[in-house]
Each structure stands twice: as C-alpha cells, then as structure tokens.
Simulated assay, not measured.
Amino acid sequence: MSRTMEDILKSAEIDPEYKKAVEENPINIGGSDIRGSRAAHLQRLRQFYPIPGPIPEVVETEQQVPTSDGQAIRVRIYSPKQAPPDGSPLILMYHEGGWCVGDLTDEDLNCRMFCRDLGAVCINVEYRLAPEHPFPTGINDSWDALKWAAANAASLKANPARGFIVGGASAGGNIAAVLAHLARDEGLNPPLTGQYLCVPALLHPGGVPEKHKHEYLSRSINKDDPVLKNLDWDIVHVIYKPDRSSPLWEPFNHPLGHKGVAKAYLQVCGMDPLRDEALIYERVLREEAEVQTKLDFYPGYGHMFWTNYPKMPMSRKFVEDTLKGFKWLLEL
C-alpha cells in the first residue's frame, strides 16, 4: 500500500484509545536496576496476553548451544505435541531490549503461538547482553544459534524446506535483518526462507543516505513515544559499542546490498522513533532489491505498544496480524 508523506506524518498523532491507556498507566522503567524493573513491569502484564503461559499443545525444553568463542548460550525450544507428518517449519526468535536488556520471556507468546497454530518448531535465543558482552558478541551468539539450528533441524523434527525464518522485535529485528544478510553471504544451508522485522532498529541517524534524509523524520518528531521517550540513544551505543563500519551492525547500509536476502514481513508503528527507517527499508527491499515484502502499519501507536498495553483491541489485532504475516512468509 502506498502512503503519502502526509499520511506518514499524520500517523504520529496518538490514537485516542492509546492515549487513554498511556495516561492511566504510564510506563516507568528505570532506577538502578533497569533489567529488573523492566522484567517486573512486563511480568505484571503477561496475564493479559493471548497466551499468558505454557499450553498443553506445545512442549517446551531448554538446551545449551555452543558459541564460537568457546562458551554456551541457552535456547528454549517449542515443539508441537502433535508434529505435522511432513515436518515442522523452523523459526528462530531473538528478543528485544536494546541489546542490553530482555530475556526469553519476551518471545514466549510468539513462539507458543507459532508452534500451536503453525505446527512450527520455534527456537527462542538468549544471546548475551551488553555491557558485559558488547558488540559483536550478541550477533555472533545469534549466528551461532542459527547455524546450530540448521545443522540440527532433523533431530529437532523440523523440515526447513517447509520454512526457515528468523525474527524479532526492535533490537531483535535488527538481529534478524543482520542474520538474513549473513545467511545469504555465508551460504547458510538450508537457506533462510523468511525474515520477520517487527519495529526494527535498522539505521543509525548518522548513516542515513543523502537521498533518504528528507523522509527520515521519525527519530525527531516521535520523541514523545510512550516507550522510547526517555531513551538516550547515545547511551545505547555507548553500552553496546557497535562498530559503525561493520555489516553486523547496520543492515540498511550493508556493503553488498540486499539482493538475495529472504523475503520480509514488517510491522511498523506510526508514533515509533524507528518508524521511518523501517518504512524506507521495506521500500528499498521491494523496489531496489526485488525482495518480496509484506508490511502492516499501525498509525497512532508507538514502539512495542502491544506488549505494554495488551488489553487494547489494537494490541490483539497486532498479535493476530503477526500470525497472518507468518502464514504469508510460510505461504500457508
């Protein structure tokens, strides 16, 4: 769907229902223990999620996956209790949290839903976090987990020929986009068939190509986003310490371009400071790299709104759209 610049700018006006929810329950994550504060905040909300906890249709196990630096990371594996006769699609999910917070609980809902409703085997990856483990440790962990999944698909009772997808939200969306390029560049076998980029972080303001600067506005005009309004972007970069010249950091400016990466499903929010990099990236993938894309857009809503206000009708629609988007990726 084509959108005029007027439509995009108007999408930054907060939806009345969202405004009411934010005013009644403002997000306040901070203090000396940001990780603990954030985890406690989301734990209070998970009872309102469409799938608030483990379900009988899904078997959940955990495993340690070796990493390229001789360590190991934890993954949670979600397998359908009744596996499809022709094998399950294989999906890896990477959580949000600015590369420095977050854990496996962030993607529990999606993994259970994909497993139950799509018959997929899902792997939820606990990559190591900054500042203890700065760039590129997290992305290296994520790549190691992806290679491990590809090599062990049969023992996981997965059939990547039915679909092999990487996905995540925010920082996890950045990781998924980086992995889609790595999989292409390194000849991952079996190859990825899809990438899910949910409100993804794709482009540093200092790296915006000249031809796109006139439409890269959301980092400045969406400063009042309820989730990211207090975020100091410079601090995030100081904590994570990314190498701006590395293809493992900014997928938008990948030195080899985007041709040949897996098709992409994106969810983008109108009030989100990350809005424009995602909208521009989707168009670049589709028009310049000839990559199949699908985009769902949520005017008047902000970054990660569905996790922080799960009782809103639009939050329920967002989760339903996520499932439909994965059906599109899997050609179901």
Rank of each mutant, 00 (worst) to 15 (best):
R46W: 03
I29L: 08
G194I: 02
H95R: 12
L202R: 09
D108W: 04
V236F: 14
K20F: 02
I235H: 04
G206Q: 12
E96V: 00
I14Y: 08
L231V: 13
H204Q: 12
I51E: 04
I280V: 14
D144A: 01
V268S: 10
G302L: 02
W99K: 13
I235R: 10
L279F: 07
P273R: 12
S68E: 04
L129W: 07
K263N: 01
P190V: 04
G138F: 12
S79R: 14
G168A: 02
C122W: 07
V59K: 15
N253R: 14
L146K: 04
W328M: 10
L188H: 07
P134N: 09
D321Q: 11
P131G: 08
A149Q: 09
R275T: 08
T293Y: 08
E250S: 15
G31V: 09
L231W: 00
G119H: 10
E320N: 11
F48S: 11
N124W: 07
L109F: 01
T4C: 13
Y301S: 05
A176V: 01
P54V: 06
G300S: 03
E282S: 13
G138R: 12
S315Q: 07
Q47F: 00
I27K: 06
R244W: 13
D15L: 05
K259L: 03
W148Y: 12
N110G: 08
